[in-house]
């Protein structure tokens, strides 16, 4: 799709949302270009399925459009709000998909790493995604926001509506699980023996 240049590229996310709520059509386009890829990217990291991620991201963006007139300025960053909505929607889907409580999910699924066979160096991102898919949703959420989206721990705490210490705990446990999942595939992924 041919998208026009983002004419409001200098405006903050919040300013764009207020403009959108006031009926500015240009703001709608700018926000779509800015927030749509973010919502999709996080949804894909969480779900590991492109079609499902687009569906979820569209739903999250729809919620953003609807809340625009009631947006209370200065209370939260638009991106933080969107991270929260996307990850919560994704968590709900994962819960339905697995049919078990997230807290009961195993820290590391057995045998999942077999899907990483024949991976080469440029496939590390895909390998990481496969490993992320094995994490419990809350750990996955924290790791994605911290290490792939680059949010600070307080920002993640706001997005996940938990304390900073809980974020640190989730991130640490998630990284340990990822390392364990990827450890057995180091050679296939181009790390070889040190």
């Amino acid at each position: 799709m041919d998208m026009a240049f983002d004419a409001l590229s200098d405006a903050s996310d919040e300013a764009l949302l207020v403009l959108y709520g006031n009926g500015d059509p240009t703001a709608a386009r700018s926000l779509t270009l800015r927030m749509g890829p973010l919502a999709f990217r996080v949804a894909l990291r969480m779900l590991g399925d492109r079609a499902e991620a687009e569906d979820l991201a569209q739903e999250a963006m729809l919620r953003l459009w609807k809340i625009a007139p009631e947006w209370r300025q200065g209370e939260a960053k638009v991106s933080t709000w969107l991270y929260r909505v996307v990850t919560n929607l994704a968590t709900d889907r994962l819960r339905r998909r697995r049919g078990v409580g997230l807290d009961e999910a195993p820290e590391v699924a057995d045998g999942a790493a077999s899907a990483l066979d024949r991976m080469i160096d440029e496939d590390r991102a895909a390998a990481l995604q496969l490993a992320l898919d094995q994490l419990p949703a809350r750990q996955r959420q924290a790791v994605i926001l911290r290490h792939l989206e680059g949010l600070s721990n307080p920002e993640i705490a706001a997005a996940m509506e938990i304390g900073v210490e809980a974020v640190e705990s989730l991130t640490a446990r998630g990284k340990r699980a990822l390392a364990a999942l990827l450890e057995g595939r180091r050679e296939e992924l181009g790390y070889g023996h040190d």
């Binding site: 799709m1 749509g36 890829p37 999709f40 687009e54 590390r124 990481l128 995604q129 792939l148």
Partner: peptide, 14 residues
């Protein structure tokens, strides 16, 4: 590697 390999949404999605 994952940060460098940003998944892009389709034009249809946008």
């Amino acid at each position: 590697a994952a940060r460098n390999d940003l998944p892009e949404p389709s034009g249809a999605f946008l």
